[in-house]
Nucleic acid binder design. Structure first.
Lengths: 185, 185
DNA sequence: GGTCCCATGTAACAAGTTACATGATTCC
DNA sequence: GGAATCATGTAACTTGTTACATGGGACC
């Protein structure tokens, strides 16, 4: 469901092609929902069948033709229904493959676990850097987010991301210290 | 993949039935990997075909018969291969449905978003409580975790959980304050 | 000559969800 | 009498992944 509704939310900003939606999913949304391009096109077909979106083909010369999607009234109703739904069971279905690895790390040597955590820290730092980059580019985004409302909530997700990844780094560093202490035992 | 390997990791502690594995997944592992019972039985079939586990039927009277699984040498090799694999692309595939809702909350009223966040905080607090309860019951678990190694890594995941959910609560409260300020504008 | 961007997908497969089915025993 | 525990699944479906296919134009 979240991907379908993310697509509806994006199309509620403006009409666009599957390709454009994919770029949205790769940029401001990527850090809290990643999706394959092929999945985007599939979901577009599904929600078109639900009458949540409709499409028209724009013939282009020199470029591939475009299939431009727009959200329907039914789609807007569905988007608002989903957003306003206070059921959080879906939200609580937490899955973290790193924690599974850590949990069973007694089966491998300490060094491998340390290297994994170090690699993870490096990735988290890279994400924080790119999010800081994004916040410096707020003016660019404010063209897309036409209302103050939109950038207000976008700010909440950015804050989330920064807090989340800093917390991940803090924890991973703490683990590495623990592992070092174990080696020195 | 993670579920298959979580099952291998559990069976590496001791032989058990699908039912027992399901309980493991519901208790110490649940907060970082949730799985349906039906999924557990399905994955057991798949990894049995891979020769990572094998099973024997134990006839019982007064109770349903048991199908007891044990990990094979091939399964142990696969578990260690997966644990030692430093590729973190799988780990970085982050998905957070709450953040999607927040991101598009400009489409609904502030009150609904606040209620969602409050509900989320309550759930996070409940999880923290149950994890604190678990740490008080460490002696019980130490029967299952036969080595110090195992409870060492288990401690890392518990620390992760506490840090993670506290951070979620801090963020959600900050969002609620922001929303309140917006209402008072 | 090579890579990136634009643009849209299909096919096969893996993973996860939801709902349902069965049935005895034990505990309150 | 009702709920929980033990115990194992199937069927139908949705969601996500991986690999592949096509092809022109722009930029270096």
């Amino acid at each position: 469901m979240p991907l379908k509704h993310a697509i509806l939310g994006i199309l509620n900003y403006q009409d666009m092609t599957g390709y454009d939606i994919d770029r949205w999913l790769q940029k401001p949304i990527a850090f809290f929902w990643h999706a394959q391009t092929s999945q985007v096109y599939k979901e577009l077909n599904v929600i078109a069948k639900n009458n949540w979106v409709e499409s028209r083909v724009e013939v282009q010369s020199g470029k591939p033709n475009k299939k431009v999607f727009s959200i329907t009234d039914e789609g807007r109703i569905e988007l608002k229904r989903w957003l306003g739904d206070a059921d959080i069971t879906e939200i609580m279905k937490y899955k973290n493959p790193l924690l599974i690895k850590i949990f069973f790390s007694g089966n491998i040597d300490l060094g491998a676990t340390m290297r994994l955590l170090e690699k993870y820290i490096a990735e988290c730092e890279a994400i924080i850097d790119s999010m800081n980059e994004d916040t410096r580019n707020i003016p660019d985004y404010e063209e897309s987010f036409q209302t103050k409302e939109e950038s207000f909530y976008w700010g909440m997700t950015i804050t989330y991301g920064l807090m989340y990844y800093k917390n991940e780094i803090t924890w991973a560093n703490w683990c590495i210290e623990k592992l070092k202490a174990k080696i020195d035992e």
